[in-house]
Amino acid sequence: MSQDHSLNPETMPHDPAKATTEGKHKFFGLWFFLGGETVLFACFFGTFIALRNSTAGGPTSQELFGLELVFLMTILLLTSSLTSVYAIYHMKNNDFKKMQLWFGITALLGIGFLACELYEFAHYITEYGFTFRSSAFGSSFYTLVGFHGGHVVFGLSWLIALMVRNAKRGLNLYNAPKYNTFSLYWHFIDVVWVFIFTVVYLMGMVS
């Protein structure tokens, strides 16, 4: 088909992610989706802030949280944001192998983040008996941080599916927009985490 040919031109356009109509649609669609996600997370944040002192006699945020692990998680996720920027840089230079490599590093960092989070949750549950059902604070904490973690899981599955699917096909105008929308989504996960470590952990440690 003429279609397939147009997806593998001799030279890639400067910004392959937005060169096709479908690419433009995906670009706008994901941005608008993030606008909605902003409100979604704002509602979780609002609920958490309203309930963060409602510990019902259970452990408080000062007793639970430690700075070291959260700092490590923050660095992991921030770095994964940079590595995905590198990947997109190589996409614009039409260097598929390097792009896959940097996205691979992004995925590893994401997995590291998730592992820390799982360890953290397990620690709270076994050491402090602090669960989803302990108090309104517990419910809102696990819901907010858990929804963020769920976003990370979804993002990782998305990325791995993309990388496996395209490993043999190489970069073309059909899949470049998909990588690009993923990277936007991944940055947004990082944005949410910045507020989580500030509002949940750091503000939970001060007062």
């Binding site: 309203a50 309930l51 409602s54 989803f132 059902r133 309104a136 517990g138 419910s139 819901t143």
Partner: peptide, 21 residues
């Protein structure tokens, strides 16, 4: 859904919840 099906405490005043949310 979490309150009704999974025992969380968002709106359960006994555990510090708040129905106005």
């Amino acid at each position: 859904m979490f309150d009704r099906m999974f025992g969380s405490a968002f709106f359960d005043v006994a555990l510090g919840g708040n129905a106005i949310i």
